[in-house]
Design a protein around this nucleic acid. Structure first.
Lengths: 168, 168
DNA sequence: TTTAAGTTTCAATATATTTTGAAAATTCAG
DNA sequence: CTGAATTTTCAAAATATATTGAAACTTAAA
């Protein structure tokens, strides 16, 4: 397969993959494009490469910066802004985990904690069932939270296998 | 908080939470409703509780069955079909992991493997960068695959903490 | 069989999300 | 300052996704 063909394929598949995970297709594609670009790109480069509008690039780039996956780069002598993506995939993964945890898992646990306190008769089967389900989801959430914190703090070995080999 | 209020809140929040993860809101709500229902429900029950159409319930229930999260229940003497959800959250989580792995992770790894073989000059910086990125994502994917397999096979202790405590 | 209850399908419709593009705002060289 | 280059915003349009509801289909009791 030719490089140009493979790049296209990677970018478009990464976009499709992203949508399955609640990530906007264009954002995923911009990220993919920056991942495989050696040099930082301008917004115009991305408009051109992905055939999308200026506004679209601008909004999604800002989102990606908000996710900590893309950085602005100043190139001296250049008026335009350039953008680059972190290339270390382990860092990318931990950054995504960190953000999703903060944005989604933490609020979910907070909500479940509130729902655990039911005023009605604790003897009621319905009440018991509800608090059991909510409580166990919360417990799972808390454990996931701890585990992910460990992963974030740990070095790459956590995932590349040396630790987990112990359980095989 | 009253049970009825908490139930409503749980169902609607679960739906909102699901959409962030690429799961259709109604599907997540139906699942939530079944999780907190002691007795199996009919499609009519769900239409009523969630104020949604018959077709919508039917399609999403079928999806949930496809995900292995909901089962049809036959109640003798009754003509209608009833539905119930697995209440053990650990089982629910492993089932979701198993399915997403099969539907998304495995195809992704397959794709990345294809993209690793670039015909162009291996000395080219662009080619090196591309194969490096694709290769490292694939490596991460393979490791995630292994880890998730371990989780799926392991008993609940994997997540409830006794194993992971070793790393603190 | 017949037929009524129950289930499934899917084209049409509604809703939600993404994208565009041009105007407004900002930045900076001269 | 001034104004051209660049970035940002956001209402309108386009696209994608979810929902409806009625017709078609299936099932099983009479």
């Amino acid at each position: 397969m030719k490089l140009s063909e493979a790049k296209q394929q990677f970018i478009s598949s990464w976009g499709a993959f992203g949508t399955q995970w609640g990530i906007n297709r264009t954002m995923a594609q911009i990220h993919a494009l920056l991942l495989v670009s050696i040099n930082p790109l301008t917004q115009d480069d991305m408009m051109e490469e992905l055939s999308i509008s200026r506004g679209n690039v601008n909004m999604n780039i800002r989102d990606l910066i908000g996710w900590g996956l893309v950085d602005r780069v100043i190139i001296s002598g250049e008026r335009k802004e350039y953008f680059t993506a972190e290339k270390d995939i382990w860092k990318v993964a931990t950054q995504i985990i960190k953000e999703r945890k903060k944005r989604e898992l933490d609020p979910m646990i907070k909500l479940l904690s509130q729902l655990e306190n039911i005023d009605d008769d604790k003897k009621d089967k319905e009440v018991q069932q509800f608090t059991q389900v909510v409580g166990s989801i919360k417990k799972l959430g808390l454990q996931a939270d701890k585990t992910l914190d460990l992963m974030i703090k740990a070095d790459e070995n956590w995932f590349t296998g040396s630790i987990l080999k112990m359980f095989k």
